[in-house]
């Protein structure tokens, strides 16, 4: 692992709102090709952490270094230009466009053609858009209106859009929320495959422990703004503090992923 370059490094990140510490002194690193899960109880500071990483929120203190550049204080679109792709908990796509056009807009932005008033968008990077859609298994839907897609397909389209700027890092906020169990597994398998092939680092938050334990290389556990545990799925699963605060008795996720169940 030590040969693999560090993509993202977070040092002593802190943020408070009106005297409440939402995030306290959180530090971690993410390497290329690694899939890192950020879990913790509701209100533990996951969203705040995420928003600071993608530039929607300013930390009070701490450093975020992405591909060697300090990103604190940069706008989301500037961070995107550095090579970060994002997906949202509730999908955000362009419903008045076709599936292909959704990806083409992202490619237009990546190619810095946003203020081109005279060209034809339909012809712009058509092949590249098609390739990205094929990659996520949406090739057959390219000419469909985006507003007609089923939820699981929208999630895959979002992934294609997120890959348009050839990102080095993917930030995925509850990527499988609202999906059926098999769709969840399929989406994460796809993400993992792309991440490994293109050595993209993935940071995701998730409440579905079946997804987390199946796909994360490493897990960070956040509670009341602080990092309370970090390690492999086996280590986290066996951590009594994490079980007490977050995992509970393990009644509501797959038995295979409970502690000691033949990991």
């Amino acid at each position: 692992m030590s040969m693999v370059p560090t993509l993202l490094s977070v040092e002593n990140l802190s943020k408070s709102y009106g005297g409440v510490h939402a995030v306290r002194s959180v530090s971690f690193e993410l390497r290329a090709g690694e899939i890192l899960a950020l879990i913790g109880p509701n209100g533990a500071g996951k969203s705040t952490c995420f928003d600071m990483l993608n530039g929607q929120n300013m930390p009070d203190s701490g450093r975020i270094t992405l591909l060697g550049e300090d990103t604190v204080g940069r706008k989301p679109r500037a961070i995107w230009r550095l090579g970060v792709g994002r997906t949202f908990q509730i999908t955000a796509t362009f419903p008045t466009m076709t599936v292909r056009e959704n990806v083409q807009v992202a490619l237009v932005s990546y190619g810095r053609q946003l203020f081109n008033l005279w060209g034809s968008t339909a012809a712009y990077a058509r092949g590249e858009a098609g390739r990205l859609l094929e990659l996520v298994g949406m090739g057959a839907y390219a000419e469909r209106p985006c507003g007609e897609l089923a939820y699981g397909d929208l999630k895959r389209l979002e992934l294609a859009i997120a890959l348009a700027n050839q990102p080095r890092l993917l930030l995925m906020d509850e990527p499988t929320a609202g999906m059926a169990p098999r769709e969840r597994i399929e989406l994460m398998r796809l993400t993992a495959r792309i991440a490994r092939e293109q050595s993209i680092g993935v940071l995701f938050t998730e409440h579905d422990m079946d997804v987390v334990f199946e796909h994360a290389d490493r897990i960070l556990v956040l509670n009341r703004g602080s990092l309370i545990a970090e390690g492999s799925p086996e280590e986290v699963r066996g951590n009594p503090q994490v079980r007490a605060i977050y995992l509970g008795e393990g009644l509501v996720y797959d038995a295979r992923h409970r502690e000691g169940a033949g990991a």
Binding site: P41, Q89, H207, M209, I245, G248, L251
Partner: peptide, 14 residues
């Protein structure tokens, strides 16, 4: 009722 909640809270929901 369990969507987006941590496993521990889901158990409380039960």
């Amino acid at each position: 009722p369990s969507e987006g909640l941590s496993p521990k809270i889901v158990e409380q929901m039960v």
